[in-house]
């Protein structure tokens, strides 16, 4: 029996050296300690031994078993290590670049739009929208810009053919469709579809029949603002716009309301800012938006009583703000989509 055990231990120790995989190991292990295994067979002999020989035999068997189990455990550990190493592959070089070299970015105009909307949302303004393909009535007439007004010139506005029908922009009568020249038309659609009090910002795309150059674009974006309530005043206009401008340009920015003219506000102003942190544009007055109190005629056009309600409105150029904030000198960068531009923001 001693020889048998020694031979088994020897066999195990020798064979395990060549066993590298788990199935080979399990097969070999079965040959030794399985139901028909060689060690199992030796152990079965134990029962047939005389009583006085049993303790010595048991000791021998235990000794052999301990050795075999230790050898198994070592091999199993080695296999486990090998498997893990195989799963892990080669160690990484952390300095190599990732092959997935794409990074998502929002366009600077989107970033600016979201920032503007976020600022106004803190004053309770919610986002409204309206069609880009707009009827002349909503774009002009309702905004107190009659047919004889210079802004109605074919020169400035892009028109659709007379027979155009749009399912997404209702008409007042048989007026033409235009590509909206400002987002102020959203004021009209908002006031017609709801009741005051109203406090909205309407970001959107606008169109002018302009030759493209460093400061002009065939389309551009505005964020329109409208606040209609019982007692909205000039002081509110100044306060709201000062808040907005300071959030965007910092608290050191100076502002002024310069009297101007828009058919849909009375009084009307251009808001100018002056800042020392605008690079080459520092220290001078820069026009950034048109604004004013809603003209009573506009209220009448949408069936709101101007005796009871007053309002303020403004329209900020998105490109203008983004250009000032980021020091961009040419509006065409926004529409060229060169990744060397887009990846900067």
């Amino acid at each position: 029996m001693q020889e048998q055990l020694a031979a088994i231990v020897n066999e195990v120790e020798t064979a395990l050296v060549g066993i590298k995989t788990r199935p080979d190991f399990e097969a070999f292990k079965a040959k030794i300690v399985g139901g028909n295994g060689s060690l199992t067979a030796v152990m079965k002999q134990m029962g047939k031994l005389p009583k006085e020989e049993k303790p010595a035999a048991g000791k021998l068997i235990n000794e052999a078993k301990r050795k075999i189990e230790a050898a198994f455990a070592a091999t199993l550990a080695a296999i486990g290590d090998a498997e893990l190493a195989a799963r892990l592959g080669d160690p990484i070089d952390p300095t190599l670049p990732s092959p997935d070299d794409f990074e998502g970015r929002k366009h600077p105009l989107t970033q600016t739009r979201e920032e503007i909307c976020r600022i106004f949302s803190r004053l309770g303004f919610t986002i409204a929208d309206g069609p880009e393909l707009e009827s002349e009535w909503y774009c002009f007439d309702a905004l107190n810009t009659p047919a004889s007004h210079p802004a109605r010139d074919m020169q400035d506005t892009l028109f659709m053919p007379a027979d155009t029908v749009s399912k997404d922009a209702s008409k007042k009568a048989d007026e033409a469709y235009v590509m909206r020249s400002h987002t102020s038309s959203v004021q009209i659609r908002t006031m017609l579809s709801g009741q005051p009090p109203i406090r909205i910002v309407a970001p959107g795309r606008c169109f002018r029949r302009d030759t493209v150059d460093a400061t002009h674009s065939a389309n551009f974006h505005q964020v329109e603002g409208l606040w209609v309530d019982k007692k909205v005043t000039l002081k509110d206009l100044k306060s709201v716009l000062d808040f907005f401008v300071r959030e965007i340009f910092g608290t050191s920015v100076e502002t002024r309301l310069r009297p101007s003219f828009f058919p849909f506000t009375e009084p009307s102003f251009e808001m100018d800012i002056k800042s020392q942190n605008l690079g080459a544009l520092s220290g001078r007055w820069l026009e950034i938006m048109g604004c004013g109190l809603v003209d009573p005629k506009v209220f009448e056009n949408v069936g709101i009583d101007p005796q009871q309600w007053t309002g303020l409105a403004f329209g900020v150029g998105l490109e203008r703000i983004a250009m000032l904030v980021h020091g961009i000198d040419d509006i065409r960068h926004f529409y060229a989509n060169d990744l060397r531009f887009l990846r900067q923001f």
Binding site: F102, R105, H107, F207, N219, L342
Partner: peptide, 8 residues
């Protein structure tokens, strides 16, 4: 990455 193109 987001792009913005002309409508026309």
């Amino acid at each position: 990455s987001e792009c913005v193109h002309y409508t026309l």
